[in-house]
Design a protein around this nucleic acid. Structure first.
Length: 901
RNA sequence: GGACUUGUAGCUCAGUUGGUUAGAGCGCUGCAUUCACAUUGCAGAAGUCAGAGGUUCGAAUCCUCUCAGGUCCACCA
């Protein structure tokens, strides 16, 4: 037996040491669990791959929330005896990391253009150094949260193994023709000098102007634009094929001489396109194939029709006008816009301008408005048909013709992947419907370089560089989501398809991540995995929301409302931090968090600590009893014993069920109610009275600590050590057993509630009548047929309600100066020995009677309604009848009491 | 423009297939302090379940509309 626990739980004193014990035990690693006989090697598996935090800085409260949720699942399943794996890792985050380091070098070290000044090699060294530091911080913080990650399997999206996986998948897709290099309009960030994918665009509303004009005096159609400078690149005007106003022009080409004084001659062909809205504006659209993805699509469509139009590239990668813009060459787009408008006005081609709100795409990393520019880049074709390889998917067979889009849709449609909350499935499908080819090449240095080499006119795609001299590797790197898309299997041994981990832990059980990256990441993992392995990456996707401040605002440095998990861990402990992120947190919903909430849970951890302290103390007093780790359910001796054992059982039942249904908040609530309201406030107080409960207390404490462990690993582990010594780890104890609820349980609950209600009502009357809690009072109870039940529990009632004398008879006489109460069929009186306030008592009774009357009348009405009696299920009708009987009886008794005053 | 989503006590939220006198935590009010815990205990007050219709024997729960928030998607030139 260990020495006594201190009075208050101070997390800072224990947490690091506890984490070290866990880590040293090696039991975060499922292989070690099997070796040490903690887990059966034939048991089911449960695996999660941690969404790798970006190595751009430190963990924030959102990460903490993610860690808490995942660790809860992991610890629960580990205790259930499953082979449980949680793989840690970090993400190189390509653009994000590179631009962050660039900024730092500029701000702290006086560089102007760090990449140019340092050169590729030196610059990358600096990025790596930064990433390493960031990684170390992240690992340290994850440990502070108590995360039981298997560090022996840690991965990085840019390490050797992952690079091999990337190259392997790239080549496979290249060979299948799913990856292609093409000249297309892409999103170009001038500031970042790199492409970005459609999903990396953030649309913002901006005040702008829409200008209406004609290309030339004899041009038959008026068109409108928000960007006149791009009109220098117009090669067509699109109209709806059914538009009678313009039908006659379709197919004609108009020459525009010296457009807007640019010195450029335009050839504008009138083309038909169904997407043009006849009713909007003039019903005609100026087509700029080079600087609008929609127009580029029309350009491609024309090409396939064999009715080609030109593509003129007037905005360059520097964001300025190109030589194709004639005299406007070198001007910024804004300057050119003004000049074009001016020239149009001068030549009387200008029809008008109007204020409008336009939606522009900005780069989420660099923040600038992106330009649409045609460039040669690498893409993944999501619509191209190919023959499916090996497949474990339900509805897709080997050799079947599919597209990547179809794979992504199919696995969710079939239910092989379940998304929680369900509504995100709709959002997911909608996104896929609108998906275009994914641009995967980036013009930055930090990332996986594209495994393609060029020599003269030849190209070579391979996992390894080609033999021979003179090959140049493509300098571009891959979109960071390409490598994170492989995450569930690149961390488990891929490309070795026979890797033990891949066989043992894939598909992963759950992907727990934020709803904000469902497209970026979840969808891409599904794409990559179904394609590469012919299997799903995970069975369930659990999407959490964002952590916001107490007013629902985003946390940001500028608002000063950031809650740093390290701070709350320091002040209130990791367990309190975890609880505050778990309870009240529903999937897909944002969580409002305040420091007070964390403090509240700190109080709870302390409560649990003291509950344990009390129980341990009680057991220690019992010198004849030795505390046990594995204890069978003891035989109850009293009603209270039966009640608490039954309550613990149903608590475990509900908690386990809730965790498995991903209702973590509910699970925590149920446990909290048991711990505080039922165990501490009632049973422990009863234990003080009834005494002699070592075995039951031992059993309950074991169950309680186990059940709380996934939520609050630190405090529970520390208490466990206090009880069972440091040779035993709670972390790998078996999750407590629970049993089907029996009829007897129901009966016990009803009986115990009666006793409890009597105590409560006496306390209430004391409070109402201002009787000091210390003062001992006398109570007389007419117990009727409950006489045995009450007599058996008289000591509890006496003790908890602080009674001097308790008279229980079948029928008692009302004392002259007493206040009465009715609980169920039982009537009782507190003998106030001459101090009763009759007026007040009358008031109280009248109020209660009025309330009860309303209730009873309602029930009577309901039951006299024939339609209710005929249509409602029998059980419901019976229940209502019973309620009416009880209500009526109680009402009668209360009325008698009122009269006797 | 399309879609999704929320509105329950002062605040944060439960309320699982329609059947409770609508719940919890925090906060608030009153009382209590040697006996596990003041990071505590006991008791209490507080809600036309956003509004209006409808379906039903019965609606916080299902349907329609209105009002007020939030989020995502989108090529309205």
């Amino acid at each position: 037996m260990q020495k006594e626990l201190p009075k208050a739980y101070e997390p800072q004193q224990y947490e690091d040491a506890i984490y070290k014990r866990w880590e040293d035990s090696g039991l975060f690693n499922p292989d070690v669990c099997i070796e040490k006989g903690v887990t059966d090697k034939k048991a089911d598996y449960f695996s999660i791959v941690l969404p790798p935090p970006n190595v751009t800085g430190t963990l924030h409260i959102g990460h903490a929330s993610m860690l808490a949720i995942q660790d809860l699942m992991i610890r629960y399943h580990r205790m259930k005896g499953e082979r449980t794996l949680w793989v840690p890792g970090t993400d190189h985050a390509a653009v994000a990391t590179e631009s962050k380091v660039e900024k730092l070098l500029i701000a702290d070290e006086g560089f102007k253009k760090p990449k140019e000044e340092l050169g590729k090699e030196k610059f990358l060294e600096r990025v790596k150094e930064y990433a390493q530091n960031s990684h170390d911080t992240i690992v340290n913080q994850s440990k502070k949260m108590g995360s039981s990650l298997d560090w022996s399997r840690e991965a990085y999206t840019l390490d050797e193994q992952r690079n091999l996986a990337v190259r392997t998948v790239f080549k496979k897709m290249y060979d299948d023709g799913l990856i292609y290099r093409g000249y297309r309009v892409v999103n170009w960030s001038v500031k970042g000098q790199s492409t970005c994918s459609d999903d990396e665009l953030v649309h913002v509303e901006r005040q702008g102007k829409i200008y209406t004009f004609k290309y030339s005096q004899d041009f038959p159609i008026t068109i409108a634009t928000t960007r006149p400078e791009t009109k220098l690149g117009d090669t067509a005007v699109a109209v709806h094929p059914d538009d009678t106003r313009y039908q006659k022009f379709i197919g004609q080409t108009f020459d525009v001489h010296n457009f807007a004084d640019s010195g450029v001659d335009l050839k504008i062909k009138i083309i038909a396109n169904e997407h043009v809205d006849m009713a909007y504006g003039t019903g005609a659209v100026g087509v700029t194939p080079a600087h609008s993805s929609v127009d580029f699509d029309m350009y491609t469509a024309q090409k396939t029709k064999g009715d080609e139009i030109d593509l003129i590239h007037v905005i360059g990668q520097d964001g300025n006008m190109t030589s194709a813009a004639g005299t406007y060459e070198g001007l910024t787009t804004v300057e050119a816009r003004e000049k074009v408008v001016e020239a149009l006005k001068k030549h009387d081609l200008f029809v008008g301008e109007e204020e409008t709100i336009q939606n522009v795409g900005t780069s989420d990393r660099f923040g600038d408005v992106v330009e649409s520019i045609p460039m040669t880049q690498w893409f993944i074709n999501v619509n191209k048909e190919f023959q499916m390889g090996e497949s474990k998917l339900k509805n897709i067979k080997k050799g079947q013709t599919v597209t990547l889009k179809k794979l992504m849709q199919e696995v969710v449609h079939s239910g092989e992947i379940k998304i929680i909350p369900e509504r995100f499935e709709k959002i997911y499908f909608h996104w896929i419907d609108n998906l275009r080819d994914w641009c995967i090449s980036r013009q930055i240095w930090y990332g996986h370089q594209i495994p393609v080499w060029y020599k003269n006119e030849e190209n070579y795609c391979g996992i390894h560089p080609p033999e021979g001299e003179g090959w140049q590797q493509d300098p571009d790197t891959l979109d960071t989501w390409f490598s994170s898309g492989l995450w569930t299997f690149s961390t488990l041994g891929y490309p070795d398809l026979n890797a033990e981990d891949l066989k043992n832990f894939h598909p992963t059980s759950v992907m727990e991540t934020g709803y904000d990256i469902i497209f970026f990441w979840v969808a891409r993992m599904i794409l990559m995995t179904t394609y590469t392995l012919g299997d799903i990456p995970f069975k369930t996707v659990y999407l959490h929301g964002m952590v916001r401040d107490e007013q629902g605002r985003k946390m940001s440095k500028s608002l000063g409302n950031v809650i740093d998990p390290l701070d709350t861990i320091k002040s209130y402990g990791a367990d309190a931090t975890r609880l505050s992120l778990l309870i009240g947190n529903a999937p897909g919903n944002d969580l409002k968090l305040s420091e007070e909430k964390v403090a509240g849970f700190r109080n709870f951890t302390n409560k649990l600590w003291n509950i344990s302290r009390f129980i341990i103390g009680k057991i220690q007093e019992d010198t004849g009893y030795k505390i046990q780790i594995n204890i069978q359910k003891p035989t109850p001796k009293t009603l209270a014993d039966e009640w608490i054992l039954g309550t613990l059982n149903s608590t475990l039942y509900l908690t386990s069920g809730s965790i498995e249904e991903f209702q973590f908040s509910g699970a925590g609530d149920i446990l909290r109610t048991f711990t505080w309201d039922q165990l501490a406030d009632w049973y422990l107080e009863i234990a003080k009275i009834e005494g002699n409960k070592s075995e039951i207390l031992n059993y309950i404490l074991n169950g309680l600590l186990k059940a709380w462990h996934p939520f609050m690993p630190f405090v529970t582990e520390e208490i466990w050590k206090g009880i069972h010594g440091d040779n035993s780890l709670l972390m790998v104890q078996k999750w407590p057993e629970f049993f089907e609820r029996t009829k007897n349980d129901e009966k016990v609950f009803v009986q115990f509630n009666l006793v409890r209600d009597i105590v409560s009502v006496i306390r209430f009357l004391r409070s109402e009548n201002k009787i000091e809690p210390i003062k001992k009072i006398n109570v007389l109870v007419s117990a009727g047929d409950k006489i045995d039940l009450l007599k058996n529990n008289a000591s509890i009632i006496k003790g908890l309600a602080r009674l001097d004398k308790l008279v229980i008879q079948e029928k008692v006489e009302k004392p002259k100066t007493g206040v009465g109460f009715v609980v169920s069929s039982i009537e009782g009186f507190i003998d106030l020995e001459g101090v009763a306030d009759v007026v007040k008592e009358k008031e109280r009774l009248t109020k209660e009677i009025t309330q009860l009357k309303g209730y009873v009348i309602g029930l009577e009405k309901k039951l006299s309604n024939k339609e209710f009696v005929d249509n409602a299920p029998k059980a419901v009708v019976e229940k209502e009848k019973r309620k009416l009987e009880e209500g009526t009886e109680k009402l009668k008794k209360l009325e008698q009491q009122l009269q006797s005053l």
